[in-house]
Every structure is written in structure tokens, then in C-alpha cells.
Design a binder for these strands. Sequence first.
DNA 1: GGCTGTTTTAAATAAATGATTAAATATTAT
DNA 2: ATAATATTTAATCATTTATTTAAAACAGCC
Lengths: 201, 201
Amino acid sequence: MANKDKDISTEEKIKEAARVVFTKKGFAATRTRDIAEEAGLNLALLNYYFRSKEKLFHIIMEEKFEQFFGMIIRILNVAETSLEEKVQAITNDYIDMLLANPDLPLFVLSEIKNNPIIFSDRVSDRLLQSTFYQQLRAVRPDINVFHFILNLLSMIIFPILAQPIICQIEAFKKDDFKKFIMQRKKMIPLWFKSMLSTELV
Amino acid sequence: MANKDKDISTEEKIKEAARVVFTKKGFAATRTRDIAEEAGLNLALLNYYFRSKEKLFHIIMEEKFEQFFGMIIRILNVAETSLEEKVQAITNDYIDMLLANPDLPLFVLSEIKNNPIIFSDRVSDRLLQSTFYQQLRAVRPDINVFHFILNLLSMIIFPILAQPIICQIEAFKKDDFKKFIMQRKKMIPLWFKSMLSTELV
DNA sequence: GGCTGTTTTAAATAAATGATTAAATATTAT
DNA sequence: ATAATATTTAATCATTTATTTAAAACAGCC
């Protein structure tokens, strides 16, 4: 084998370019030439290192799915933390992650819709067996607590999805958007708590 | 001019097929052949009636943007209704519309992101000048009430976006998803009210 | 029926794009 | 240093796909 440094370097350059372009434009809209250009490399190298556009895409997609779901699952499954602590942790860490990866949610939602494979690691099951889920059920045995999980994720993720719309509002420039989202770090846990104790008439 | 009925019929057949395919797959992933096939018509007719794939797409896109934003803007601008009534109306009507058009939100978000044009009718400005916005400010002058608008839309729209994920959960079959969303019609207004009266520490 | 303009069709064209090849260059091992 | 191996490049191929064309089918009208 040749120089390991260089091997990793070009292969990783391609993957990094693929991450950027695929998550920004999705599978169908990205051309292999876009990735090669983003990486500053010859087009043929994509097929040399990864056999095809599809194979490269699958690698990136799996990575991104793990990035999207992994953090949620891990936090919700911690046994020692309280409900409030989990909400706080999700809100904080997930907002930070999404601000650093604003293309991630739309990418994941789009590609799952195009190709609703059964998740290899059964994300959904792990969610339903999480300690968070059990803790919620203990507080609100009267309703399907999946509503609350969805509300929490909605309030965190949707504003990121809507960023291109929100940023067209006069009052919002690039910087303001980040500030606006950061404000939510404090408020979402409070709102969540209020919702959780809302009586259904 | 020849038979008007037939003119409208084929032209409308193409538009209807284009609505279905474009909203399901987005611009890049749909081939003109897909639309022709969906319409049951010869491929060349697309270019005969509409000059190009792009021109046809723009027509559908404008339609869909109006469908997505129009109802919100109209309800939020009614002068006579109370805050509670507006929340109730948005929740009810918008959930119904989205259940009938589940591909709409992802389509709109994707295409706006690809091409963040300034909206011709200034959706964002109309939102900031709506009576709903003023009513919210009257109740909560202490914080940026755009947070509340976003929370409301998040809780309504995000579950539809996440349907392909949600429906992989064992407990959710197609029918259950609709029931689940319908339950939210009653709860979202109550949750919203709770959030609105949440004190920030 | 025959003329006129419109609509539809099948086939041709041209551009875009994923993939391959063969030669050139660089790296490693002997 | 030299052979062997691995990587990179430019050019090309093959396929897909949007668009055009030219002729056929059709409708309305005198």
C-alpha cells in the first residue's frame, strides 16, 4: 500500500466534499462533478475510491442518520438523569449540533421519505423503550406521551428547517437568527414543562 | 381555436400530474417522463403546452407556495377573531390541509432552500403586520412573540414532515398516524395557551 | 368533401452526467 | 536504483434525459 497519509487524505477529501454537497442538495440534485469540484480533485477519483455515486452516498447517508438520531437516542436513554435534565440536555446539545449542521434535518427527512428503509438499529424501538419515555408515562399516564416527545423535537428542529424562510423577514439577518435560536435554549424547557402539566378538558 | 374542453383537459392533466410528481420528488429527482407517464400522455406534450420542465415547475411551485402560506396568512389577518379563535382555526384547518397534502411541507421547504427568492407577496411582512402578531404582543410584550408563532407552526407541521419516520414505529400503521394527528387538534390550542402564560424565570 | 389551424405522435437531436480507460506520475519495497 | 504497486489525470464512452422536429391525426368550418 502507498503512503497512508495521502490515501486517507484524498479519500477523506472526497468524503468531506460529499458530506457538504449531498447534505446541501440531496442525492438527485448533486452531480459527481460537483463533489469533485468541491474537493478540488479529478472526477475519476470518486469512482476509484468509491465504486459509484450511490455507494458514496450510502456511506454519507449512514453517517448523517447516525448524527441526526444518535445524540437524541443516547440522551434519552441515560438512566440516571431526571426528566427535566434530559429535556435540558436535548435542547442544549441538539440546538448546538443543528446550528453547526443546518442542512442536516432537511437532508435526513428528504432521504428517508425517498427511501423509507427500516432503520438498521431500530431508532423508533429504542425511543419507545427509553427511560425518557418511561419517565413521561409516569407523569402523564392519561395520554400518548409520544405527543410530548414530538412537541419537543418540533420546537427544536422546525425552526432550523424554516431558516431560509425566517431569514427573509426584514428583522432577521444571519446573526439575528442564531441569537433567536439561542434564546430558545432557555425557553423550550420551560414551555415543555408547562405543556406537560396542561390538563386536558 | 379548437375545442376548449380538450385544450383545458390535456393542459390540466399535465399540471395535475406535475403537481403530484414534483411535490413527491422535488424538481431534480423528477424526470419529464415521470410526469408524462403519470398523466398518461405523450412526452412531447409537456414542451408543447409549457415551454420547458423549468417553466412547468415554476407554475406548480407558485401554486404550492400559495397553498402553503396562503391559509396561514389569511387566518392570522382576520380582524374580528380573538387570539384563541385564530389558534383554533389555524390548528384545525391547517392540519386538515396537510393531511390531504402530506408532501407539501417538505416540498416547500426544500425548494425555498434551493432557491431563496424574495417572496413576491412578502409573506413575512404580512405575518409581522397581522392582527395575530399584534394580539400576541399585547399579551406578551416582554418577549419576541415570533417564538410563539413558530412554536404553533412547529407543532402542526413537523409531525407531518416526520411521518415517514413515525410510521416506522411498530405501534403506528397508516391509520393510526391520522388518528394521532387528529388528537392534536384538541391539544395544540391548550398547549399553546399554556406556553403563552409561561413565566420566564 | 376539402381547407385550415390545432393537437398528438414517433423519431431524431443535443446536452448532461455517471462511469471507464489508458497513459502518466508518484510511492513503496527490494 | 529499479521494479512493482498505487494514485492521478485527461480523454472518452455509454446512458439518460430534456427538447425539437416533422409528419400524422383531428376538429371546426365553408
